[in-house]
Design a binder for these strands. Structure first.
Ligand code: MN
Ligand code: MN
Ligand code: MN
Ligand code: MN
Lengths: 219, 219
DNA sequence: AGATTTTGTTAGACGAATCTAACTTATTAC
DNA sequence: GTAATAAGTTAGATTCGTCTAACAAAATCT
């Protein structure tokens, strides 16, 4: 149906919209590392296929059809990441690039089997929700760790912007999803915070790090 | 390095050479369902890349480099098939089409991990040998069941021409790799044979079937 | 408001992989 | 050994996804 190339555009449109609200040609170009004229012409093509609403100089929007197809690719991506971590024992920092390729495999049963073997997981190894069979995805309303107050105890539920470097940094601090974290103090000057978790009593986390950590306040 | 398209040509060249000795443009065209002029121009391209020896109107040959690269793709294909059967519980009749896609995934660790999880298997689910890390592959010298004599007891070791239909036929007769088979009689007229195995005492197998079953004489 | 910068579009080209139509070489049949 | 058929090549076109250069519109700065 859609080419691998088209799939990557759809996915980027979906993800950017989710992160920053509005999508424009420039941002899409930056994200996909593809020059703007190429992006413009692909948008016209996707518009013809009724996957994108396109008007010159206006922000880009996926149609409902486009959202669904994008959601289904992201579903395959996230199921794959979960499979690689759970069943193939990869680290969470090593799965994205492989999933980026496997998400394009055309085989319904392949991903159904994955899902079954995984026990119908709701989230991927980075805490992002796995879209359902219709491509629909719902984010829980997590808070950023950087928005929490002194004294609170929270649970690490997801990470934003899952670069390998960032995930390795978290590994080096023994931080993983599900971790219970207590906020001991916040430095007003640079908004760095001191937290305790596991066996670590006073770990300093910069604001840059805290803004990428999504937490749930414990019930 | 090589495109997905080039990889499929290399694999076909390798497989046809293995099956029928000589490869020509016509056969490659038939196998890949690609018209002859397209094949000719790809051969010129692969010749430039030193993967194929090409001379107009002459049979086609992979270079050593070409054999190695083809072997490595087939390695990925067969490891994948084994993984799908062993770890993901697919039937041997359902894995080829998925493997046809996954063989093109670019990730050394992905296939290393597969191999490790599988315990370094020597053959794929159809009994074909898995090439080593250098793309080298060695076939054991199996016999065709159709070449065996009355009274012999053999072990089913591999199947030739692994179409889904043929494998489903074998499933329906409860035939699988490793099965011990005794040859009870051979009908001279059509070379069909009567065999016994497992709980089946007198199963008729046509010559067409027997020519596709590779067996080892039991030690 | 006008100048400058950023963003986006148009036009034209290119490589990869495919095709069809026409022609050539090799093989097979008689 | 010539005629017919099959196999292979050449030439030219097409689609996809990409690019650069040039131009146009929108946003930002002073
Ligand atoms: Mn990912
Ligand atoms: Mn991708
Ligand atoms: Mn196969
Ligand atoms: Mn393939």
């Amino acid at each position: 149906m859609n080419s691998l190339t088209e799939e990557n555009y759809l996915k980027a449109l979906f993800n950017i919209a989710n992160e920053t609200g509005e999508v424009n040609v420039n941002e899409l170009s930056r994200r996909l590392q593809i020059k703007m004229p190429t992006v413009t012409s692909m948008m016209k093509k996707l518009a013809q296929k009724k996957l994108v609403h396109y008007e010159s100089y206006k922000p880009l929007h996926l149609t409902e059809k486009g959202k669904k197809e994008a959601g289904l690719i992201i579903r395959k991506h996230r199921l794959t990441e979960m499979f690689l971590v759970d069943k193939m024992k990869f680290g969470w920092e090593d799965v994205h690039d492989i999933a980026e390729q496997i998400e394009h495999i055309q085989s319904v049963v392949f991903f159904e089997k994955m899902e079954e073997l995984l026990g119908y997981p709701k989230v991927d190894p980075h805490g992002s929700p796995i879209p359902d069979r219709n491509g629909k995805v719902v984010w829980k309303d997590y808070s950023k760790l950087s928005d929490c107050k002194v004294g609170e105890t929270v649970r690490l539920s997801a990470v934003i912007n899952t670069s390998s470097e960032f995930l390795k940094f978290l590994n080096s601090r023994e931080m993983r999803l599900g971790l219970k974290i207590r906020i001991r103090s916040i430095e007003p000057f640079d908004k760095s915070i001191i937290v305790s978790y596991g066996k670590r009593q006073a770990e300093v986390l910069s604001n840059v790090v805290c803004e990428r950590l999504l937490v749930e306040k414990d019930a």
